[in-house]
Every structure is written in structure tokens, then in C-alpha cells.
Amino acid sequence: MAGWIILGIFVLGILWLIVIYNGLIAKRNDVQGSWKQIDVQLNRRHDLIPNLVSTVKGALEFEQDTLEKVISARAKAVGATGPQSKAEAENMLTQALGKLFAVMENYPDLKSNQNVMQLQEELTSTENRIAFARQLYNDLVANYRTALQVFPSNFVSSMFNFRTEEYFEAPAETKAVPAVNLSIRK
């Protein structure tokens, strides 16, 4: 009788282990999948930039410097390898694009050009998608980390050597303290 009970507990334990293990695997795959999603969106941006540059080149004759920066930043971002240098190159590209959009504001001709407006909308959308993909990645990492660390699944994670995943960090300059508006509220 006692043997049956022990066997039962043992089987239950195995089942519990399988459930926890599978759950962790699923979460880890979610995290990795969402990391790939960021890459997909970054590539989308790389593909759009040459179109934009060639469309606005004629009108932005006196802004060749800004355009050059965008082109070179894109080239760097495409060629970058390794997460660290890649993140840096992408941030450079984001800044260069922001500068270009600011410059384009001064050209009413461009604003009335439907082609340019469509490209700009696509790029804005892509910027958003990149930000959202990172947001999703961080959410999933938080989810995964919690699963790794809570009792009792932390036994399973240490038993099978589940490694923790890193958060995506925001670039340093965007971490600046936001300006506080001290105007009197009603």
C-alpha cells in the first residue's frame, strides 16, 4: 500500500516537473521569438530608408549633410554585428532620421508631395513598431524571469540550467530626467 502511495507521489512529481518545464520552455521561446521580431522591424526600416532618401534628395539640395548622415547611419546599422554595436548603430540611425524629419518640416513642397508623406507615415509606423517590439520583449522577459525565480519553479529552472534573459536597455540619452512642470493645477 505504502509503495503505491510513494509511486503515486513520484508520478505526480514527474508530471508536475513536466508541466513546469514545458511552461518555462514556452516562455523562453516567446522571449526569443520577440527578439527576432525586433530584428524584423529594424530590417523593415533599413528597406524603407533608400526610398525616402531618393524621393527627397531633389528637394533637399541644401541639406546634403543631413541626408549623408542618414545614409551612412543606415549603412552602419546594416553592417553592425553583435547586440552592443547594433544597438548603438540603430540609435544613431533613429537620431539621424529624426533630424531629417525635422528638416523636412521646413519644406512645404515636400509636405504636399503625397509620395513623401506616405513614406514618412511608413517610417513613423516602423519606428513605433520597433518601440513596441522592444516593449513586448521586455514584458516577456519580465514574465520569464518571474517564472524562473518564483518558488517552487526555481528548483526546475536551476535543475535544467535555464539562463536568465537580459532586458533591452534604453539608450542613455533618453534616460534624462524629464522636465517637471510645476504649474498650479486646479
Partner: peptide, 19 residues
Amino acid sequence: DDVHRMFANIIQELHVVTG
């Protein structure tokens, strides 16, 4: 349509953030 396209794009972005 530009405005409609923007709306459709935003919905796509939504799909990105919700996985």
C-alpha cells in the same frame, strides 16, 4: 487613403505590442 492607411498601420503596430 492616407488617413485610413495610418489607422491600418496603427492596428498593425498594436499587433506587434500584443505579440
